[in-house]
Design a protein around this nucleic acid. Structure first.
Lengths: 342, 342
DNA sequence: AATCTATTTGTAAGCGCTTACATTGATAAT
DNA sequence: ATTATCAATGTAAGCGCTTACAAATAGATT
C-alpha cells in the first residue's frame, strides 16, 4: 500500500545486491559473464524486489526490442487468425514477442500502425499483401526495419514474400469449374481496390476463361466486402439475373457461406441448380452444407515460414528470400455439372 | 542510400528549425503553447526530415504510452476477434493504440505476456475471465496498471468486469431445454480448468436441472478443447451411449458446429432424433443446418464498453465499475422436443 | 619477483525524449 | 517611467537501461 514500494529499477537491485548496475544488467542479459556467487546474490535481489526490467528503457539503450509487429487487415477472419497463431508460436521459440494490430482494410490506418510499430521499436514487420505506397517501404528502409509480405507471393516484387499466387490458385479452380461444363460464370469477389490478393483471384478466373476461349462477357462480377451477409446479398442479386449463372465462384469461403445460406433461403439447390465455390478452406468450408469445393491454403505453414524468414532477416542471416507455398483445389460437394437445360 | 540520412531525432528537427528541443516537443504534444510562426517552421522541419518520434524514448520520458494491451486466450475464435475489433475501434477514438497477444489458453504464457505488456508501458490491460493468480493482480497493482476483465461478469470480484454471467445465461438456455421435455441431457463443455466462463456454463446447466428436480446423474458431461473436431468427436462418443441423451448442450457454437457435422456424418437427424444447442451466437450459428439454438452474446457491445471503462480508469475518471451485458436465448431450429419413445 | 593475460567488476556516457524551472520580451497596470 | 503579469521559449535534469572502456584481481609465464 505504501507508495515507497513502487516499481523497483535496476539501480535498486544493484544497491540491494551491493554491485553496480552494469553487473545486474549482465546477470540478466549475459549471465555467463558474471561469476556464480555474484549472480546468485543479484538474482536474489531481483527476486525479492520483484524486479522487471523497463522495456522502453531497454529498447532505447539496446536499440533492439525482440519484438515483431504484424499488421493484418482484420482479426475477424479465420485465415489470418490461424496463420498468425502459428506465426506467433514460431516467434516465441526464437525468443521474440509478437504484437498484432489490425487495419480494418484501411490503408491510412495501416500506415499509421506501421509507424506506431516501428516507433515502438519492432525489429521486423509482417505485412499482408503487396499493394502499398512506396513511401511506406522507404520509411521501413530508412528505419532499417526488415519486413516480409505474407498471404501473397510475387517473385517480382522488391519485398520478400511468403505465400502463393492467388491468380494461379484461382485459375486452377476456375479450370475445374469450366471443365465441369460451366459457361455462364459469376464471381463474388472481395473489394479489389488496394488488395492484390482479391485482384489476383479475379485475374485467375479471367485467365482460365481465356484459356477455354470464353469471352470476358461470360463473367458476371460483383465486388463486395468479405462478410457473410454481403455474400448472401450478392448471391441474391445473381440469382435474380436472367439467364442465371450456373456457377458462383466466391472470393473466399466466408462469401461462399453467405451464398449458401441465401441459396437455402431461396430454396435453390446447390449444386443441382447452381454450383458454388469458395477459397481458403477454413473450417467453415467443411461445415456448411453442401461442403464447399474450395482452394486449400495451408495458413499455418505460411505463418511458420514467414516467421522463420523474418527472424532470419532481423538477425542478418538472410537477405530476404521469397517462399512459395503449395495450395491445392479441394473437391467437395458444392461444385457439380451445370443443370442440363443450361 | 547514404547512411548519413538515417533516422532523424528531435534534436535534428530542433536544429533544422532553429529552436530548442523543448519547443519541438511542445509543437508536437501541445501545439497551442507555441506561437503560430514557430510552429510552422518546426512542422516544416519535421516534414522535410521525415521525423517520427521514438516511442520508447517518449514512453520513458513521459511515463505514459497511450497503449492498451489485451491478452486473449486465442485469436482463433470469432468471439474474441469480433469483440476486440470493436474494442480497438473504440480505443482509437480516444487516441489509444491496442496491442494484442494471445496466450493459447496457457496461464504461464498469459502471465509472461502480461509482464511483457506492462514492461512495454501499457497504460491499461484487457484480460479475459477472472481465473488468475492473485500474484498477477498484485503485480498490476504495484505497477499501477489498471485492468478490466471482459467476457465474464462477477460483481463480487475485486476487478471491474464487463460481461455477463455465464451461469445465468446457460441456466436460461437449459431451462428452455428442460421445458421442451428433455430429461437425458449431455453437455460438451470447454476445458473448465482455469476458465471461469466454461465453469459457469456447466454450473448453469446444473442449476437449471436442480430447479426442475432432475438428479445430477441425469447429466453426462464431456470436457474438451473448443475445436470443431473435438466437438465432433465428443458427439460421436455421446451417440454411442445407451440410452442416448436426447439433447447435447455445447459449451460454444464451435463445439456445436462440430456436433452437427458429426450428426450429419452419422445420419442422425437434428433436431428430430437429438437436439443440439450452442453458445455465443457467432455467424456460424446461423449458417450451419439446422441453424443453432444458442445464446446470443453481444460481443461488439462488450468490446466497446470495456474500452470505455478501461480508458476512463486509465485517465483516472473511474475507479472501475463492473458492467453487465444483456444476453438472450435465440431460438432457431436445432432444439426441439425429444423423440417420443424417450 | 616481475610481467603478462584473462576474467570479473565498476564507471560513466549516452539512447531520444519530456518537463520543471529559468529566462526573455512584450503588454498591461500603476 | 516603473513594475507586475503573462506568454513564448530555452536550459538542463532526468526517465531506466546497455555497453565501451577502465580498473582491479588472480593466475600463468618468464
Amino acid at each position: 500500500m505504501g507508495k515507497n514500494r513502487s516499481v523497483p529499477t535496476l539501480n535498486d537491485v544493484a544497491k540491494a545486491a551491493g554491485v553496480s548496475t552494469a553487473t545486474v544488467s549482465r546477470c540478466l542479459n549475459s549471465p555467463d559473464q558474471v561469476i556464480e556467487a555474484t549472480r546468485q546474490r543479484v538474482m536474489q535481489a531481483v527476486e525479492s524486489l520483484g524486479y522487471t526490467p523497463n522495456f522502453a528503457a531497454q529498447v532505447m539503450a539496446a536499440r533492439r526490442s525482440f519484438t515483431i509487429g504484424a499488421i493484418i487487415p482484420t482479426m475477424d477472419n479465420a485465415i489470418f487468425a490461424r496463420g498468425l497463431q502459428e506465426f506467433q508460436n514460431q516467434l516465441r521459440e526464437s525468443g521474440y514477442t509478437l504484437l498484432v494490430s489490425s487495419s480494418a482494410y484501411d490503408p491510412e490506418v495501416e500506415r499509421e500502425q506501421i509507424r506506431t510499430l516501428v516507433a515502438r521499436g519492432a525489429d521486423g514487420l509482417l505485412l499482408i499483401g503487396h499493394a502499398r505506397d512506396a513511401e511506406i517501404y522507404e520509411y521501413l528502409e530508412r528505419h532499417q526495419v526488415p519486413s516480409v509480405v505474407a498471404w501473397s507471393y510475387d517473385p517480382e516484387a522488391q519485398r520478400p514474400s511468403v505465400g502463393f499466387s492467388n491468380a494461379d490458385a484461382m485459375r486452377e479452380l476456375a479450370r475445374s469449374v469450366i471443365s465441369a461444363g460451366h459457361r455462364r460464370i459469376a464471381m463474388i469477389s472481395g473489394i479489389t481496390q488496394g488488395n492484390d490478393r482479391a485482384q489476383g483471384r479475379v485475374v485467375g478466373v479471367q485467365q482460365a476463361m481465356a484459356e477455354f476461349g470464353l469471352e470476358a462477357s461470360a463473367l458476371t462480377l460483383i465486388e463486395t466486402a468479405y462478410e457473410i451477409d454481403k455474400g448472401a446479398e450478392a448471391f441474391r442479386r445473381l440469382m435474380a439475373l436472367a439467364p442465371r449463372p450456373t456457377v458462383v465462384m466466391c472470393g473466399n469461403d466466408v462469401l461462399a457461406a453467405g451464398a449458401l445460406r441465401e441459396a437455402r433461403r431461396l430454396e435453390i439447390q446447390v449444386p443441382e441448380q447452381v454450383s458454388v465455390t469458395g477459397f481458403d478452406d477454413i473450417e467453415l468450408a467443411e461445415i456448411v452444407s453442401p461442403a464447399l469445393t474450395t482452394v486449400h491454403v495451408p495458413h499455418r505453414e505460411m505463418g511458420r515460414k514467414a516467421a522463420c524468414e523474418l527472424t532470419a532477416m532481423v538477425e542478418g542471416k538472410s537477405e530476404g528470400r521469397s517462399i512459395c507455398i503449395n495450395i491445392r483445389v479441394v473437391n467437395r460437394h458444392s461444385l457439380a455439372k451445370p443443370p442440363c437445360q443450361s
